[in-house]
Computed example of a mutant assay.
Amino acid sequence: MTTNYPFDSLADSAIVYRALLGKHWIDEANLVLSFAYLLRTNEADLSVRIASVCSPEQCAAKFKNCYGVASLQVGQIRELGLDAVPDSASHALIVGLPHVKDDRDKAERWADLLAERSSIVWQPSQT
């Protein structure tokens, strides 16, 4: 996949974090749900943080409300035919996802597959 970003490509073994910004993105068994990987209307690509330069806590701290942070290996993203492309030293975009309004079946299928490959690595303390 050709990019216009000036940052080095991520290794397949690299880990990225997805901030879980909705309570409905996590189920009762603490599994990531597909909602976490559906593009929102204002998004062209899906925002993730690069784990080698950003801890799960730092990822969560970027948002007013964060209900968890999920990790995903870049190689698993690429196995699906998508890619994680760095656009800064600590941030990347999962590219290749369609919006639900453009192709609901494909958007939901990829979101399901990404969620299945994710694991929650941080949640706020319940104090």
Rank of each mutant, 00 (worst) to 15 (best):
V53I: 09
L46C: 03
L39V: 13
V48E: 02
A61I: 04
N30E: 08
L21S: 08
A51C: 05
Q58C: 06
D27S: 07
Y37R: 11
K62V: 08
P56E: 00
F63V: 00
A36D: 00
L31M: 15
L46R: 07
L21G: 08
S47Y: 05
G68D: 02
S71M: 11
I50H: 09
K23Y: 03
N42T: 15
D45R: 14
N42H: 15
K23H: 06
Y37W: 15
Y37Q: 04
G68T: 06
L46Y: 10
R40Q: 13
A29I: 10
E43W: 06
E57G: 06
G22W: 01
V48C: 10
L46Q: 11
I26P: 05
Y67M: 02
C54Y: 03
I26Y: 01
R49M: 04
S52Y: 06
L39N: 07
E43M: 11
V48A: 10
W25K: 08
K64Y: 10
N42Y: 14
V53R: 15
L39K: 12
Q58G: 03
L46P: 03
A70I: 00
N42F: 13
L38S: 05
C59T: 13
N30H: 06
E43T: 05
H24N: 15
A51L: 07
H24D: 12
A70N: 02
S34N: 10
E57Q: 14
W25F: 08
K23S: 04
C54G: 08
V32H: 07
A36N: 05
S47K: 07
V69F: 00
L33R: 14
D45K: 11
C66W: 00
L46E: 06
N42P: 08
T41K: 13
A44I: 06
